Amino acid sequence: MPLTRPPFESGRLEFGYDVRIDTLIYAMTAAGVKGAEQLRDKPAGWISIFETVGAHIAKNASNISIIDAKEEFGMLHMRVIDERLGREITDIRMWCANESAVRCMAFGTPGQIRSDHNWIMTLSDAAFDLRNEMPEEQFLSLVYPSPHR
């Protein structure tokens, strides 16, 4: 069954992100997914992408390992291995990259890849404006709100 686009978030996520990511990691680990901790400390705006992938792979959790989940050039690159088959599930990697390229890293709202100040991020118009108005550390705390950071 193919992955479907989750709804966009309604805005700022820094207050609900920790509960959602902790719940997701706990549920995935309890279901037998290896490497669920790889999802921690990632952009808050991508939480619905992680939740969608988590629900998808939970169906065959005992055979699944998340090898890597990282942000590069404003997109999510997630490597998921089906251990039974001994290979990467490339559909998940491509889906995550495509979904993250249109979803704001800070707010989960529609966004686009933008480059400025020596960085590349997927941001909404509102997040892009904040990025240019706020001190960098304050802005990054919106994107990466986790205390584990």
Score class of each variant (00 low, 15 high):
P7G: 09
P7C: 04
F8T: 13
E9Q: 14
S10Q: 13
L13T: 06
F15L: 14
F15Q: 13
G16L: 06
Y17H: 14
Y17V: 04
Y17E: 03
D18V: 11
D18A: 09
V19N: 06
V19G: 04
R20N: 10
I21P: 01
I21L: 05
I21C: 00
D22P: 05
T23F: 05
I25T: 13
Y26E: 12
A27V: 03
A27D: 15
M28P: 13
T29W: 09
A30T: 14
A31N: 11
G32D: 10
G32V: 02
V33M: 13
V33T: 08
V33G: 08
K34F: 13
G35Y: 09
A36E: 03
Q38G: 00
Q38M: 10
L39Y: 04
L39Q: 06
R40E: 05
R40H: 00
R40P: 00
K42I: 08
K42S: 08
A44Y: 14
A44R: 12
A44M: 07
G45Y: 08
W46Y: 07
I47Q: 07
S48T: 14
S48Y: 05
I49A: 10
F50Y: 15
E51A: 06
E51I: 06
V53S: 02
V53K: 04
G54I: 09
A55F: 00
I57F: 10
N60M: 03
A61S: 14
A61K: 02
S62R: 11
S62W: 05
N63D: 07
S65F: 08
I66N: 08
I66P: 13
I67A: 09
I67M: 10
D68E: 14
E72R: 11
E72P: 01
F73P: 02
G74M: 07
G74P: 05
L76V: 15
L76S: 12
L76E: 08
L76P: 15
H77V: 07
H77R: 14
H77N: 05
M78R: 05
D82M: 11
D82A: 04
R84P: 02
L85T: 04
L85Q: 15
L85P: 07
G86W: 02
R87Q: 15
R87A: 12
R87G: 07
R87I: 12
E88N: 09
E88R: 14
I89D: 12
I89C: 03
T90F: 11
I92C: 03
R93D: 15
R93I: 01
W95M: 13
C96E: 09
A97T: 15
N98D: 13
E99A: 13
S100K: 04
R103L: 15
R103M: 14
A106Y: 02
F107H: 06
G108Q: 12
T109A: 00
T109H: 00
G111S: 00
Q112L: 10
I113F: 03
R114W: 01
S115R: 13
H117Y: 05
H117P: 00
H117G: 01
N118I: 00
N118F: 01
I120P: 00
L123K: 02
S124W: 15
S124R: 06
D125S: 11
D125L: 14
D125E: 14
D125N: 13
D125T: 14
A127H: 04
A127E: 11
A127K: 05
F128L: 15
F128Q: 09
